[in-house]
């Protein structure tokens, strides 16, 4: 670190924790992918690899009284909130020990005890759920509602309606748009008129577009947005420019991406970026290596435990609460 450079990591210890979370998310997604290819994870999965800086950066600022609505690309959102990784993996594996007992699967993970209202399989649904959460929290805990959604959701009615709804009612709502450049298989520019940020701004909702590969940049922008929201000024919007390393879902090889694009983004891998920065600012390389080994061991143990976990036996659901 040269004498003229300034530190960008505002809390070295915290970023050590974030580094571990990011590694866990990446490793978790790699594990899900490998188990999928072995036929142990069913249906479809939407992996978060490449986007780790967004979920971890935002979650690092959330409090116990806040509530979060995630997307169907939600494993990273869940892990960053502290959902038990083993229970999350077991859910993917359809086991009784899953976070939802195998009822939900990859796209619908729900864990209110971890502040996760749910993972929303309908594009834009997370925004509506978080809007409602904000309405309640304003009256109850004083916390904020947080919605993650992708660039694809920007063209859903939910965005327009809920932005306006939350702004006129001054609801404590943080909107986090993960612009990973593709809505399913289609580049977002091809199907999106104008700039994403212009939409919230047209309603007077403050919005920022930031580098979504750098976790400290995401965290700083989210901190500004959350300060606005917690102060009772209504919603705020963060657009994080990011990239998913894999296809939309398991059946998508991502052939529509121009040659070299993936490599360009990988050159700014959020985990590598943070590791470099941590070392630059004095975090011991040996400590980072130890974290890497621990996460690797944890994932291997999770894999073994998950595959040994029992499947649910018989559906015991009741239709209504008495």
């Amino acid at each position: 670190m040269s004498e003229t450079s300034t530190r960008v990591l505002d809390d070295l210890e915290l970023y050590g924790v974030i580094y571990r979370q990011m590694l866990l998310i990446r490793g978790f997604e790699d594990l899900v992918q490998s188990l999928f290819l072995k036929g142990e994870v069913y249906g479809t999965t939407h992996l978060y690899s490449g986007q780790e800086a967004v979920a971890t950066g935002v979650a690092s600022l959330l409090e116990g009284r806040d509530r979060v609505a995630a997307t169907y690309r939600g494993h990273g959102h869940a892990l960053a909130l502290g959902v038990d990784p083993q229970a999350l993996l077991d859910e993917m594996l359809g086991r009784a020990t899953g976070v939802n007992g195998g009822r939900a699967g990859s796209m619908n993970v729900t864990s209110p005890a971890d502040r996760l209202i749910g993972s929303f399989g309908i594009v834009g649904g997370s925004i509506a759920a978080a809007t409602g959460a904000a309405l309640a929290l304003k009256r109850t805990t004083g916390g904020i509602g947080v919605a993650y959604f992708g660039d694809g959701a920007m063209n859903q009615g939910y965005v327009f309606e809920c932005l306006n709804f939350a702004q006129v009612l001054k609801l404590p709502l943080l909107l986090v748009c993960e612009n990973n450049r593709y809505g399913e298989y289609t580049p977002f520019e091809a199907v999106t008129a104008g700039e994403i940020r212009g939409r919230p701004e047209s309603m007077g909702v403050p919005a920022e577009t930031v580098d979504g590969m750098s976790v400290w940049t995401v965290r700083a922008a989210a901190a500004r947005a959350i300060a606005h929201v917690r102060a009772g000024n209504g919603p705020a919007f963060v657009e994080a420019l990011t990239y998913r390393y894999v296809g939309h879902s398991r059946s998508d090889p991502g052939a529509y991406r121009p040659e070299g694009e993936l490599a360009e983004w990988r050159a700014r891998d959020p985990i590598v970026l943070l590791r470099t920065q941590l070392e630059d600012e004095g975090f011991a390389g040996s400590a980072l290596a130890a974290v890497e080994q621990e996460v690797s061991d944890q994932l291997e143990q999770m894999r073994e435990r998950g595959l040994a976990a029992p499947f649910p036996s018989g559906l015991t659901a009741t239709e209504f609460k008495d």
Binding site: A129, T131, T140, T141, G145, C162, F165, V168
Partner: peptide, 28 residues
């Protein structure tokens, strides 16, 4: 207005606000 209020003509948002608030402690 904290407990009874007018909303925009936005049925998606209305239903979303009902669901989200119902699973977070209110009875909308």
């Amino acid at each position: 207005a904290e407990r009874v209020f007018d909303t925009p003509i936005s049925e998606l948002a209305l239903a979303g606000a009902a669901f989200g608030s119902a699973v977070n402690g209110l009875r909308p």
